[in-house]
Amino acid sequence: MRVLVAGASGVLGRHMSMALADAGHDVIGLTRSPAGAEQLGRMGVEPLVADLMDRDALLHAVDGMQADAAIHAATALRKVPMRHQNMAATDALRVQGTRNLIEAVQSIGARRLIVESMHFGYGYGDFGDRTITETNTPFAPPGRTPALERHLQGFRVKEHLALHTDGVDGISLRFGALYGPGFGAGGTDQIVTMLRKRRLPVVPDRRPGLLPWTHLADAGAATVAALERGTPGQAYHIVDDEPASMNAHVRFLAAAFGTPKPMTVPLSLVRVIGPYLYVFLTSAARLSNDKAKRELGWTPTYPTYRDGIRSLAAS
């Protein structure tokens, strides 16, 4: 298939684009910067420069183009978000950016649309010991605070537009916390650099959150599986088999890469200097990946974060 990938020069978008190309699909990489276009060209991906937030420029850029499918993996994150305002541009991409992309998708004749989502779409908080499936828990409920509602609105609108727009066969992939090769939000290279400089602390273990995790290579493989075998109108959890706290992930990462041990800071300090990071670290959710395994034929190459980190360190 000929596939337009929005956000192709981002950490997640690069992995998706390469997985699609490796599977034999023809990839057009949408990026908003000339530097991103150069990067995509070096990867062998056909670049297209346009800003997803600029409707008119986007529609002009795709005028006359034909494609079979599109992927929405665009975010505005370049580093780990600390405050709620650090998510504002990504929230906007999930709302207005999705609206603009759907217009572009319709103009190029593409029917299938796959959108990136996350476990945080279920809400920020502690879900306890129960396992969340794609149907047993409401997705994107109202947020407890105005700041959390803005983030959840982004997840809510993006998924609703993808799954319920006439003429669009939408599929949502709900990822866990991303890690793997790459420098930027979701990439482990940045985290290791921060650990080497002792700029990434952990919090006391008495109240660690519990995150589902997704290796970027597994995210790319799931994108191909969803494109080829996914059921329109459905959402799939693309997570590994074992949730773990950020503390456990970071400490294992430090040991595997031989960096200094991360220092421990009190949660009260994190709450003051990084309110978004605080809710990230104290949220807890267990997601089932049974549906993706059963319907997409997808299984994680890295069943746990330990498997993925060992592979990263070895390479």
Rank of each mutant, 00 (worst) to 15 (best):
F280P: 00
L211G: 01
N247I: 05
V27Y: 03
M65D: 11
S311H: 15
N289W: 01
H15S: 10
V192S: 03
R2L: 07
I132S: 04
R144K: 15
H25K: 12
V203Q: 06
Q153D: 15
V168K: 05
L48V: 10
P81G: 09
G24L: 09
A248C: 04
A19L: 03
L312H: 10
A147R: 14
S107Y: 04
F280H: 10
R196G: 13
T131A: 09
G143P: 03
K158E: 15
T90Q: 06
A21D: 03
D63P: 00
P262N: 08
A225L: 06
T282F: 02
A67D: 10
L277M: 14
S268K: 09
T223M: 12
H119W: 14
W213D: 05
A92H: 13
D22F: 04
V265I: 15
R286A: 09
M1E: 09
A255G: 04
V202T: 15
G13R: 00
A284H: 09
H249G: 00
R83K: 15
H25D: 12
S245F: 02
E159K: 00
R14V: 05
A256V: 01
K158L: 14
R144A: 14
T301E: 14
V95R: 14
L59W: 11
P262T: 08
A76Q: 12
V105Q: 09
